[in-house]
Design a protein around this nucleic acid. Structure first.
Lengths: 229, 229
DNA sequence: ACCTGAACACCGTTCAAGT
DNA sequence: ACCTGAACACCGTTCAAGT
């Protein structure tokens, strides 16, 4: 989960006085010497959710963070790298959500797999704009991988570990672990992307519990093929 | 499959003479009184494949079609509707590709399902930019549905029909036909989108036969869950 | 060191004007 | 009827200049 570390925003006494005196009430906060990088990612994530990836301009992100349109270039090479950083935060939320869901079912790889898949689908349906930024081809793969660092393999690694433990326990089919993991990912990813794109009808009309039930049934159907016969 | 109907490009004798005399060799063809709408979709599809959806500007599409940047507004309300028309052509190619693959396996619903899924994944891997335009959240869902018309339900309808015939034959599991169809779609869509997005490594290094084998195995794993036990 | 403001080439969209 | 060219507000990016 991305969090803004406000403890890093330190102002000198004189800066503080100026900031208070010229305060235009909750706008144009001075990020000088603060963590502008984090503030830009935060503002960008908010704008992304409100207006979608198409309406996400570098200039508006900068304005929302209270700096000039050229300031972001001190922290990101170009717009693509800012988008990649926003997407990377999304990947981390996805990884964390799956791990948390799986942790509710110790010693039950099948339940872990389904719970992680449900979490994946629910997050995709809840934040379609982030999902599209992450997987919609809006960022060059190279930049995305650069911003991801270790987090990319992270989520898939968790999935592989679940499959592996299930194979050891004799619950899942024998065969290439990586391929079983890829099949599981494909089911959750496919359903999540279809929901995010509105291909299954407007998402507003589905209640959270209806969504969870749908995800659960579809994933269970797909995961059925991974079980040992 | 989208095809350009060249028979519709009719020029008067004088126009033809001017066109030939002032020919800058394969550029700036006069689409006056021709099928500019189809020419724009054609040029847009080509530019999309060459440069991706991010680099697809209305002005460049117009230039590639040999008209001014304002001419497209005679045929499309805005850029979004041109993109929707390009995406609609992609949906139709996908539907046709799946139908053709399924037709190779008469009276074998399981083989039809796997063949259709393979075709879906192969097309997604071959034209990732089109896939991202179709499913990447770049077009407002309303505009996309408007441009699709009858084609949207078309591909999914074919899938439902395959599942239905398999259920009647006692091959597939009983239960909600729509949900089995959605699970099948999710598997193919998920794998296709992951390949298109480069999440499974650079696509260039996979040969067509390796790709087909991967798609076949992953889809068979997922479809296994739909079989009657 | 960090940010600003002007400048540049591009973009989507509109509209009066041409044929 | 159909297309053009100028105009507008916006965009990403660069860079000399300010503190």
């Amino acid at each position: 989960m991305f969090t803004l570390d406000t403890s890093k925003w330190t102002l000198s006494t004189s800066e503080r006085r100026i900031a208070i005196e010229s305060m235009p009430r909750a706008s144009a906060k001075p990020y000088h010497h603060g963590d502008l990088r984090a503030a830009l990612i935060d503002a960008g994530t908010k704008l992304l959710r409100e207006r979608g990836a198409a309406g996400l301009s570098l200039r508006e992100v900068a304005k929302a963070a209270g700096v000039s349109h050229a300031a972001p270039y001190r922290h990101f090479e170009d717009k693509g790298q800012l988008l990649a950083a926003i997407a990377a935060a999304g990947f981390e939320r996805l990884r964390a959500g799956m791990a948390k869901a799986a942790a509710d079912h110790p010693d039950d790889p099948r339940a872990q797999l389904i719970a992680a898949g449900e979490a994946y689908v629910e997050l995709a349906a809840k934040h379609p704009e982030t999902m599209h930024l992450m997987f919609g081809g809006m960022i060059e793969p190279g930049k995305l991988r650069g911003a991801l660092g270790e987090k990319g393999p992270g989520a898939f690694g968790d999935l592989v570990a679940i499959i592996e433990s299930g194979q050891r326990a004799g619950i899942f089919a024998r065969g290439e672990t990586i391929e079983l993991a890829l099949a599981s990912w494909s089911i959750a990813h496919g359903l999540g992307m279809l929901l995010a794109g509105g291909q299954l009808g407007p998402g507003k009309k589905r209640t959270p519990s209806e969504l969870k039930a749908l995800a659960s049934r579809v994933i269970a159907l797909g995961v059925g093929g991974l079980m040992r016969e």
